[in-house]
Simulated scan of single mutants.
Amino acid sequence: MAVKALYEYKYPAADRAEIFGEDQLLYVHWRGNPLFCSAACFRAPQAMSFNDFVAEIVNPWAASDPDFEPSSITDWQLFDDALDPGDGSASLTELGIGHKALLKFTTA
């Protein structure tokens, strides 16, 4: 349902990129897992490698599911496009992962 403001709203968004400096917000969604029915949001350095992002941010979050096995992560997507992180040494920025991007994965 749409909301109609009674006045002009002139406040900048609190989650805009310039607020976070060298960091960015990233949404991560584990597709097909009923325990995580929606994406979670994390703050991560733009220069962080993809491997470090997975090891330091995604794996600890996903480990709250007792069936999670880190080696079973497959099929990464950036929004709805396939994402091939290669060997994982590239930074998030080098992979085209920007502020408020949605990363999705499944497990085997």
Results as ranks from 00 to 15, higher is better:
1 M>K: 11
1 M>E: 13
1 M>Q: 11
1 M>P: 11
2 A>T: 13
2 A>L: 14
3 V>Q: 10
3 V>F: 13
3 V>S: 10
4 K>H: 13
5 A>I: 00
5 A>D: 12
7 Y>C: 05
7 Y>V: 09
8 E>L: 11
8 E>Y: 03
9 Y>S: 12
10 K>M: 08
12 P>F: 04
13 A>F: 01
13 A>G: 07
14 A>P: 00
14 A>H: 01
15 D>L: 05
16 R>N: 05
16 R>C: 01
16 R>V: 00
16 R>A: 09
17 A>Y: 00
18 E>D: 13
19 I>G: 00
20 F>C: 01
20 F>W: 07
21 G>Y: 00
22 E>N: 09
22 E>H: 02
23 D>W: 02
23 D>V: 00
24 Q>H: 02
24 Q>V: 02
25 L>D: 02
25 L>W: 05
27 Y>E: 06
27 Y>D: 09
27 Y>F: 09
28 V>T: 02
29 H>Q: 12
30 W>C: 07
31 R>K: 14
31 R>Y: 00
32 G>K: 08
32 G>N: 05
33 N>Y: 05
35 L>D: 11
35 L>W: 05
36 F>H: 15
37 C>G: 14
39 A>N: 06
42 F>K: 06
43 R>M: 10
44 A>E: 03
44 A>Q: 08
45 P>Y: 04
46 Q>A: 10
47 A>C: 07
47 A>E: 11
48 M>P: 00
49 S>L: 08
50 F>W: 10
51 N>K: 08
51 N>E: 06
51 N>M: 01
52 D>I: 00
52 D>K: 08
53 F>W: 13
54 V>H: 02
55 A>C: 08
55 A>V: 10
56 E>R: 15
57 I>V: 15
57 I>E: 04
58 V>F: 05
60 P>W: 09
61 W>E: 13
61 W>T: 09
61 W>P: 05
61 W>M: 15
63 A>D: 11
63 A>H: 09
64 S>I: 10
64 S>Y: 07
66 P>E: 10
66 P>I: 07
66 P>Q: 06
69 E>Q: 13
70 P>R: 13
70 P>I: 13
70 P>Q: 15
71 S>D: 15
71 S>Y: 09
72 S>E: 15
73 I>N: 05
77 Q>T: 02
78 L>V: 01
78 L>N: 06
78 L>D: 05
78 L>F: 04
79 F>R: 06
79 F>M: 12
80 D>F: 08
80 D>L: 09
83 L>M: 00
83 L>I: 03
83 L>K: 02
85 P>S: 04
85 P>D: 02
92 L>A: 07
92 L>H: 04
93 T>E: 14
93 T>Y: 04
94 E>V: 00
95 L>F: 09
96 G>R: 07
96 G>I: 04
96 G>E: 08
99 H>D: 09
100 K>M: 12
102 L>V: 08
102 L>P: 04
102 L>R: 07
104 K>A: 11
104 K>V: 03
105 F>L: 07
107 T>Q: 08
107 T>N: 09
108 A>I: 04
